[in-house]
Measured scan of single mutants.
Amino acid sequence: MSIQHFRVALIPFFAAFCLPVFAHPETLVKVKDAEDQLGARVGYIELDLNSGKILESFRPEERFPMMSTFKVLLCGAVLSRVDAGQEQLGRRIHYSQNDLVEYSPVTEKHLTDGMTVRELCSAAITMSDNTAANLLLTTIGGPKELTAFLHNMGDHVTRLDRWEPELNEAIPNDERDTTMPAAMATTLRKLLTGELLTLASRQQLIDWMEADKVAGPLLRSALPAGWFIADKSGAGERGSRGIIAALGPDGKPSRIVVIYTTGSQATMDERNRQIAEIGASLIKHW
C-alpha cells in the first residue's frame, strides 16, 4: 500500500482519535458579512469528516447552483462504474471539434489522439474542462443518470439537468442544476469515506481534487503551510461562485467545507476574496 493510499485508508482512524471539535460562531459572522459585502445569498456548511456531524452552517438547506462543483460527483459516478466493471479508466475516447464547448483548455489539445477516461476526469476536476465533463456525462448516460446515481446514494436534493455550459445559467428560483450545502457536503463525505467506492477509487477521487489547479484564489489562499486540501470550485452566471473541499491540518483532511453564493453584482475577484476570507476565519478558529 502506498503512503497516499495509507493516508486515505486511515482518515477515519486518525479522526477518531482527534480531540473533540467545537464550532466557532466567528466564522458564521464572516459568512454573514460576506453576504453584506456581496449583496447576495451565501450558503455555508462545515462537517466533521469522521462523524458527519454538522459543526457550523448557514442557509444549509437553500438551493444554490452547483456550477462546476458537480464534476466531482460526476467522476465519482464514473469511478463507481469502474468498480462495477462497467468502465475502464484506460479506455480512450475520441471526439471532434464539434464536441468542444466553451472553456476546454485540455480537451482542445487532444482532438487528434483523444483522451482516456482517467485523463478526462483529471481534466474535468483539476482544470474544470467543460468538454471533458460533457464527454464523461455521455459515458454514464447524461445528466439524468448522474441525478439517479445521487438518488441511489441517498441524495434526493442534488440534481443535474443540463450539460456544460448551460448548467451554469443560475436563474433565480430555478431548481435545475442545483444542490443544497448540506446535501453536497453529505454526498461528498460519502464519496470520500464511505463504502460506495473502493479504496482505490476513493484515493483516485481525492487525488484529482488535491491536484486542483484553478481554485488557488479561494480556500487555498488562506491555508497555512502543512495543511491538506482537496477541492473543486465552480463559477456561473449572475454572480455565482462555489467551492467544495476536504481539508485539515497535519497533512490530512478532517472536515468537509461547502460554500456557495449566487445573485451578486460583485466582480469575480471580490467573490473570490470573500470566500478566501471565510476560509481564513475557519482556519483561525479551527
Results as ranks from 00 to 15, higher is better:
P25H: 13
N98A: 14
I243A: 04
M115N: 03
D212L: 02
I259S: 01
K213Q: 14
N272P: 01
A266G: 13
F22A: 10
A77T: 10
R241L: 03
E169P: 05
A124I: 05
G90C: 09
D177S: 02
E119V: 02
P12C: 13
Q88S: 13
G43C: 04
L218K: 02
H5I: 08
Y44V: 07
A280I: 14
A235C: 03
Q265L: 14
M115E: 03
F58N: 15
E164V: 00
A200D: 15
S201T: 08
E175V: 15
V258D: 01
V31T: 06
A124R: 00
G226V: 04
E237C: 12
G76T: 07
D113N: 12
L192H: 04
C121F: 01
L19W: 15
L47Q: 07
A9T: 15
L135G: 02
P20Q: 15
R241M: 04
L100S: 04
I54A: 10
Q204V: 11
Q204D: 08
A211G: 13
S96P: 07
D161V: 06
Q274I: 10
P60I: 12
H5W: 05
P12L: 11
T198W: 04
S2R: 09
P143S: 06
D36W: 15
P25D: 09
T158P: 00
D231E: 04
V82E: 05
T186L: 15
M209S: 02
T187L: 08
D231L: 04
V106W: 07
L135A: 06
L146R: 00
E35L: 02
M180F: 11
C121A: 08
K213Y: 09
I93G: 02
K213F: 10
A215T: 06
D212P: 04
R91M: 06
L188S: 06
T186H: 14
V29S: 10
S254K: 14
M184G: 02
A23W: 03
H151W: 15
E169N: 11
D161Y: 04
H24F: 10
L191Y: 07
L73Y: 06
D161F: 03
V8D: 11
D231Q: 05
T116R: 06
E61S: 12
T178E: 02
T187C: 09
A77D: 09
K32Q: 15
T261E: 06
P12R: 05
A123K: 02
T139Q: 13
W208F: 07
R91H: 09
M127V: 12
P143N: 04
F14E: 02
V106H: 08
E46D: 07
I229H: 02
E164S: 00
R238C: 14
P12K: 08
D161P: 01
L247C: 07
T138H: 15
P172L: 12
V42G: 01
A84N: 14
A215I: 03
G242Q: 02
P181R: 00
F58T: 08
R118A: 15
I244N: 02
C75Q: 01
E145R: 13
G216R: 08
T187E: 04
R63V: 08
T69M: 03
G90H: 12
A170Q: 07
S68L: 00
I244W: 00
L282M: 14
L49R: 03
A215H: 04
A235P: 00
V21P: 05
G279C: 09
D250Q: 15
A132S: 08
T179V: 02
I243G: 01
R59E: 03
Q37R: 13
M209A: 03
K32S: 12
S221I: 11
Q88R: 12
I275Q: 01
L160G: 04
A132E: 00
S96D: 12
P65Y: 03
T116S: 10
W286Y: 07
L160M: 12
K109R: 14
T187W: 04
L74N: 02
G239T: 02
K232M: 00
E35P: 01
G39L: 11
I256Q: 01
V8L: 14
E195W: 06
D177W: 01
R41N: 10
S264L: 04
L19N: 15
A200F: 09
T261L: 10
G43K: 00
L146N: 02
G216T: 10
I229M: 08
W163L: 11
F17P: 05
S104P: 02
A123T: 05
A123D: 02
S281I: 14
K71R: 01
L74D: 00
E210H: 10
E195L: 04
P20A: 05
T186R: 14
W163Q: 09
Q204L: 14
A15Q: 08
M153D: 04
Q204C: 14
P172I: 12
Y44A: 02
G76V: 05
A84I: 11
M180Y: 14
K252R: 13
T187K: 01
E169S: 14
S254V: 12
T158F: 07
L219S: 04
C75N: 02
V258F: 02
L74R: 00
S96V: 11
P12H: 13
I45T: 12
I140Y: 09
G239R: 02
P60N: 09
E119C: 04
N173A: 14
L136D: 00
V258N: 02
L28P: 05
M180C: 14
E102C: 07
T158D: 01
R92D: 06
L191N: 03
Q265D: 12
I45N: 03
P217W: 05
L192Y: 07
I243Y: 06
A215N: 05
K32T: 09
H5D: 09
N152K: 13
A170M: 07
Y103I: 04
G216M: 10
D269L: 12
T267C: 10
M268I: 10
F228V: 07
D231T: 04
T126R: 07
Y260N: 01
F6I: 09
R92I: 14
P20M: 04
P253S: 09
Q4L: 09
N168M: 06
Q37I: 12
A183N: 09
D269Q: 12
G242N: 03
P165Q: 06
D177L: 01
R255H: 05
Q86A: 14
S254M: 14
Q204G: 05
V72L: 05
T27D: 04
D212E: 04
R202T: 15
G39C: 11
A225N: 15
R162F: 03
A230D: 00
